[in-house]
Design a protein around this nucleic acid. Structure first.
Lengths: 186, 186
DNA sequence: AATTATCATACAACACCGTGTCGGATTGTA
DNA sequence: TACAATCCGACACGGTGTTGTATGATAATT
């Protein structure tokens, strides 16, 4: 065979090529030919490794999802440190995947994972998932994801500790006094 | 000419046809031919009215954006009623546009609009936009959008008042005690 | 050690489908 | 009858996904 074990290498090359393109433009505008050319292979070779263009993204996303464990700890504090850590570990990929021309369904998947962790906990403890509780979970998950992403995408982002203390204070105080804070400096 | 004033009618028919398809599948899988056929026209006719498939969506989105005014009132309460009203008015469209195979960039646009309203207020009052404040705004905007959408997409959704009271209590209390609530019923 | 079968890898060629753009056909209005 | 608004058929082009083939590496057989 042609240099056995090249399979992994070629695959990696294609993924890298895809990623380079995906940073710059949305997935619909990326062609199989482009990816193959950028990786230095024939267009047909691409089909030996992937089903189509979105399939490449799928594999990348799976890798990230596997790395993300949204376990909920035993004390009563929200597991922010862990969430922040997994996001930071995949910062580069996530800021593209969850960015302007990212993957909306991946965004939903991530949030669903987080939401489900809370829902499972409620079920385990026999706490009914009322509309009020659902609203609170949804609010928390979305707020966390979005603020986390904002932080990740800052060019000179402050330390993880700074971010953590910022969300913690929001979690503790709520956002009801937000307008007040925007109106006067004190 | 062929029935003068048909232009508007045809346009509407094409939009309706597009929308019917868009409810079911993501935009990349919708072809010009499908839209035209569903509307009862020749494929070429489509190009008399729209540039391409995403262009149809663009026009729909513009209509919604125009309807959305995120003004901030003079008192210190968050302008939730108004936001809820505009979302409810466009419920059908929004639950698709912001759904699983919706438009990620539209999602960003909506949130940017809301965020900017807060940022402008801060600037007007000379309040520096610190990292902490940015985090809080981002958290609030994302939380609001997501919980609102969750509510909109419920098959038997409770009244707007019920939703409003739920978010208000989250805004006031914060989500720090969320885990506690999930662990014991009291 | 030479032979042969087999397989992994890559590629070229092909038929197919959707795109976007012509020029021309149709039909209501004047 | 002439004009113009509206619509359509036909075209060239580019991307897709598949099929068949060439090449070289491995391994079993003699």
């Amino acid at each position: 065979m042609k240099k056995e074990g090249a399979k992994k290498e070629t695959r990696e090359a294609l993924i890298t090529a895809f990623w380079k393109l995906y940073r710059e433009k949305s997935i619909e505008k990326i062609t199989v030919g482009e990816i193959a050319a950028a990786a230095g292979y024939n267009r047909s070779t691409f089909y030996e490794y992937f089903y189509d263009v979105p399939d490449v993204l799928q594999h990348i996303e799976n890798g990230i999802v596997e790395d993300m464990q949204f376990g909920i700890p035993d004390d009563d504090r929200l597991p922010m440190d862990e969430v922040v850590a997994t996001f930071e570990r995949n910062a580069d990929a996530l800021s593209v995947l969850l960015g302007e021309h990212g993957d909306f369904s991946f965004f939903f998947l991530i949030r669903k994972r987080m939401r489900d962790a809370f829902a499972e906990l409620a079920e385990k403890n026999g706490v009914p998932l009322t509309f009020e509780l659902q609203t609170e979970i949804e609010y928390h998950v979305a707020g966390t994801t979005a603020s986390l992403l904002m932080w990740l995408r800052m060019t000179d982002r402050p330390s993880a500790e700074t971010y953590l203390s910022a969300v913690r204070s929001v979690n503790e105080a709520g956002t009801e006094r937000l307008l007040g804070r925007l109106r006067c400096e004190g």
